[in-house]
């Protein structure tokens, strides 16, 4: 893996809910708000759909940062999906912090469909945070490194 060279750019996986944050990203685009191109968007029906498995699996596969974004509380297309998600994310976020995953790797936000500018700000903020942290190594699976010694014992 290429370690931090000067032109290193993080890869950030963004799970965006279809009804608010994804539309917010769309609005940011049509409104020509600039935001870093580091995010790779995965469109999900609702932030409540995003499971811990998906987040950790993205980290494992080498994402440098994660952003999960859904509708503001009260605005969920499915009425309460984001409320459930909020409880789960609060616990997950604390648990990841507890095991020593750097704060800022996994991020959560609320962005509505009308908040194109806010979406750009959130992405800007998350990208800066992840850039400051450098490329992810914790909970990232590397199979090339395994070959050498684990083989032996």
């Amino acid at each position: 893996m290429t370690e931090q060279s000067t032109n290193w750019e993080p890869k950030i996986i963004a799970f965006l809910c279809n009804w608010c944050s994804y539309a917010g990203a769309d609005l940011a685009g049509v409104s020509r708000f600039q935001y870093p191109s580091n995010i790779r968007i995965v469109r999900v029906p609702c932030s409540g759909r995003v499971s811990e498995n998906m987040i950790l699996s993205a980290l494992k596969s080498g994402a440098d940062g994660i952003l999960v974004s859904g509708c503001h509380p009260g605005d969920c297309h499915y009425i309460s999906g984001n409320y459930f998600a909020r409880r789960r994310f609060a616990l997950l976020s604390n648990l990841l912090d507890f095991i020593g995953v750097e704060p800022g790797r996994v991020n959560f936000s609320w962005v509505s469909a009308s908040e194109g500018e806010q979406f750009a700000e959130v992405v800007q903020g998350v990208t800066e945070k992840v850039k400051a942290l450098g490329s992810a190594s914790r909970l990232v699976k590397k199979i090339d490194a395994l070959e050498t010694e684990l083989q032996v014992a």
């Binding site: 596969s61 080498g62 699976k141 590397k142 199979i143 090339d144 070959e147």
Partner: peptide, 9 residues
Amino acid sequence: DEVVRGQGR
């Protein structure tokens, strides 16, 4: 089979 970032084993 395990594949991580294009490398498989």
